[in-house]
Nucleic acid binder design. Structure first.
Length: 469
RNA sequence: GGCGGGGUAGCCAAGUGGUAAGGCACGGCUCUGCAAAAGCUGUAUACGUCGGUUCGAUUCCGACCCUCGCCUCCA
């Protein structure tokens, strides 16, 4: 089944093949590092991770870039408030971002360019110069340079906006009073006192780059003039990605991006996530409440990216249960396989990949997985699943885990807990139930749960902290 | 005002012109010293409202209601 994805540009599901056979050039808008990223940000990054992993599952190589915006109004404001140089202010948030990516099992991009790196600033200046030379941009009196949207007739094609119908005067800040047209956006922002020592020299005077040109410069600089897929959250469609198209295509004369994919925002408990509403969460907030990265990953990935996602604690709880079901299945399969080799290439889970081929239909893909879980559990109950069959299923599971990354956290069992387990086994052999229960409580206090099965004691991490809103 | 997305059983959520996946929750059973867990299994008047097209619509068309988002630097 061929890959097909919804293209924001055409508003249609289209078949996808990369320009260069076997290699997908993917650009994904990354975080602005002025704070810890929140779970809404991570919905976008997890959607992009699913996209990358599925493309790789289908045998394509993915060359992925994710930028870090480390200079803009918010980072400058934050650094001034903290009394730190810009780079010192953003560094901890960059580090935290990578820790969060790991916790959520998001694959690292091949490149994480930061806007302030000299080679990118140079390219931004080059691109702006080219735009000025071609008449697509102009220098205003204060030294800022603006893109002339009227010079690019297709401006609005991505968001499907008609320039003439845009409301005038909305959110046009005071420092942009000398633009030719309200829709013109800043390519280069002249230095102002509030910028402190954040400034670079340019042909138009000291200043700093506008946000949009960062992405155009880093995307074309690293991936080339024509990119296969560009992703982001839906709020990036306008003006950010619209501006990127205009800037890039006016410089290169080429089609900047062939496929635009955007994910919907998430809500929290049915409402827009907002600090004022008290429903604003970073990943760190959730980890502190005792949820694990993979549980958050499941909750954020399990709703199709083009649908609004309602993030709830009930949903996290459901994620935990569903993951445990998969864990148990995997353990049972391993026991049944008992080290056997698959005797044939099984394809029980073909429907999983086919669902993802269809515009990343993760719900249908997970349904296919869970149907297989139930069917094969039934067989194992009946003793009707052979060791090679179980081994074949394990091999398939392992392959789809390269896409889902839902595998259990491998926590090492402390020796103290192992000692308690041994004592408890002895107590149980002696049918000393009272001591057995005391030891069970001690193990629980140490952060582990012991279950008695027909095959003896089994240990699991947890229980997790009781999580509430 | 412009553009767009949603409304499917208690909750989350696929999907289809011919009476509807999956997950969670809930009940039953198995297992079990107890407990928990796990597995199997079951229930449900589930397709926003009103019209239309059709042999037949949840699926197509129209209107309406509710809800969410974007409209110039918020993923």
């Amino acid at each position: 089944m061929p890959l097909r994805f919804f293209n924001t540009l055409t508003r249609a599901v289209e078949g996808f093949t990369p320009r260069e056979p076997g290699l997908v050039r993917l650009y994904t808008c990354g975080p602005t590092v002025y704070n810890f990223a929140h779970i809404g940000n991570f919905r976008a990054y997890i959607f992009e991770d699913l996209l990358q992993r599925h493309l790789e599952y289908r045998g394509l190589r993915v060359l992925r870039v994710m930028n870090l915006t480390d200079v803009d109004d918010k980072t400058i404001r934050g650094s001034r408030a903290a009394g730190l140089p810009l780079a010192e202010f953003t560094k901890p948030f960059k580090d935290a971002f990578f820790e969060d990516l790991d916790a959520l099992r998001i694959k690292r991009a091949d490149h994480f360019p930061a806007a302030t790196e000299p080679q990118h600033i140079s390219r931004m200046v080059e691109m702006i110069s080219a735009l000025v030379d071609k008449g697509h941009a102009y220098r205003a009196e204060d030294g800022s340079v603006y893109f002339r949207v009227r010079s690019f007739p297709r401006y609005g094609c991505l968001a499907h906006y008609n320039l003439d119908e845009l409301r005038d005067g909305v959110r046009v800040s005071n420092d942009e009073y000398d633009k030719e047209n309200a829709g013109d956006f800043a390519l280069w922002k002249a230095w102002s006192g509030q910028d402190g020592d954040v400034a670079w020299d340019s042909p138009w005077g000291r200043g700093r780059p506008g946000w949009h040109i960062e992405c155009s410069a880093m995307a074309t600089g690293i991936l080339g003039d024509e990119i296969d897929i560009h992703c982001g959250g839906e709020d990036n469609i306008f003006p950010h990605h619209e501006a990127e198209i205009a800037q890039s295509e006016c410089v290169t004369g080429r089609t900047f991006v062939r496929l635009w994919m955007h994910c919907r925002h998430l809500q929290v408990e049915g409402s827009k996530m907002a600090k004022s509403a008290g429903n604003f969460f970073t990943l760190r907030d959730l980890l502190e409440k005792g949820w694990t990265g993979r549980e958050v990953r499941y909750a954020l990935i399990s709703v199709k990216y083009r649908e609004p996602l309602n993030f709830t604690f009930d949903g996290l709880s459901a994620a935990r249960s569903a993951l445990q079901r998969l864990d148990e299945w995997s353990v049972r399969l391993a026991e049944t396989a008992a080290g056997a080799q698959p005797d044939s290439v099984s394809n029980e889970l073909a429907a999983f990949g086919e669902a993802l081929d269809d515009d990343l239909n993760i719900s249908a893909a997970l349904a296919a997985l869970f149907e297989t879980v139930r069917a094969t559990n039934r067989k194992m109950d009946e003793g009707a699943l052979s060791a090679p069959q179980a081994a074949g299923l394990l091999a398939e599971l392992s392959k789809i885990q390269t896409v889902l990354a839902f595998g259990p956290d491998g926590a090492a069992v402390p020796s103290t807990v192992n000692a308690l387990l041994e004592r408890r086994a002895a107590a149980r052999a002696a049918k000393d139930w009272k001591l057995s229960d005391v030891l069970r409580d001690e193990i629980l206090a140490a952060g582990w749960t012991v279950k008695d099965t027909k095959d003896g004691q089994k240990l699991a991490p947890g229980p997790h902290a009781v999580a509430t809103t």
